[in-house]
Amino acid sequence: MIKAVLSGDMPRSSVLALVLGLILVCLALAPFLFPGVRTVDTAARICVFIVLVASYDLLLGYGGIVSFAHTMFFGIGAYGVALALTHMGRGFDAILVGAAAGALLAAVLAFVIGLFSLRVRAIFFAMITLAVASAVAVLVSQLSGLTGGEDGLTFKTPRALGPAFKFGDELFGVKLNGKLLSYYVVFIGSLVLFLLMLRVVNSPFGRVLQAIRENDFRAEAIGYRVVYYRVAATCLSAAVAALAGSLYAIWLRYVGPDTTLSMEIMIDILLMVVIGGMGTMYGAVIGATLLVLAQNYLQNLMGVAGSLVEGVPVLPQLLDADRWLLWLGVLFILSVYFFPTGVVGRLRRG
């Protein structure tokens, strides 16, 4: 049963299985285990980023394709839902239309970029995605009448997903309201999309993609059209990234260039893929969880650590909460040094 759900791609390490199980349980029960606005928001962010990073891993880890436009696709999905909810009203139909339109537009854009640039060397694809992503980010800022410009768009989701909607009193001290439902829409949506990605990479299509990554000429000499497979992977990855963006928009009820289109998010995605382990899918779970937790709690943790070593020379300055980015960088360097194949690769090797 579990093997079928995971498309036969088992964790292949008891420690990894334990960690993944723990993350799954924590995310599934996050509103009950860690009640609080910030903790549930962190859990929702982890869910969305797992999907976003998994979709990027399909490109980079499985297809060997470097793209800098992943946040653009993420943003297209988020803006799709935001615009639909703004213009069509706060209904579930608007969410469906917005998410479908976003995914479709992302796939079409990926198809056009891929068809023109994946025929030639992969470096051109990376350069073109960077250029297109930058152009779209500028466009979103400039078209303020439609997109809200730099301020972004705040919109209303269906009543059933808002905090004012109540469907019971309390369960284990947690209010049964629309925000809880909204979290589970994000959680279940992310779980389904992640399992879909797992199915894709373990399908014959995924195997061909891996073969192309390893030796594209050999894959061609067997009879596979490399460009077709690369373009298909790019489209699929873009569509899933857009759906992740849609889930993020539903959760935040806000979209803006900084939350969905920025280069910082693109760098975060790259870090998550590398830390988790490229070409493993489960690496997306580990990478996204570690980095989102670090981004949200490292500062607090350092504040506590700093106060504990007060009076000791140098250490309080080093552990100052404002220096959290420095330590995040150190953690990244250490993880790359000790886990060159990512956490998942290291755990699988035993």
Binding site: R207, Q210, A211, E214, R218
Partner: peptide, 8 residues
Amino acid sequence: DMGIFANL
């Protein structure tokens, strides 16, 4: 060079 897919 054999050209096998080593990770498969």
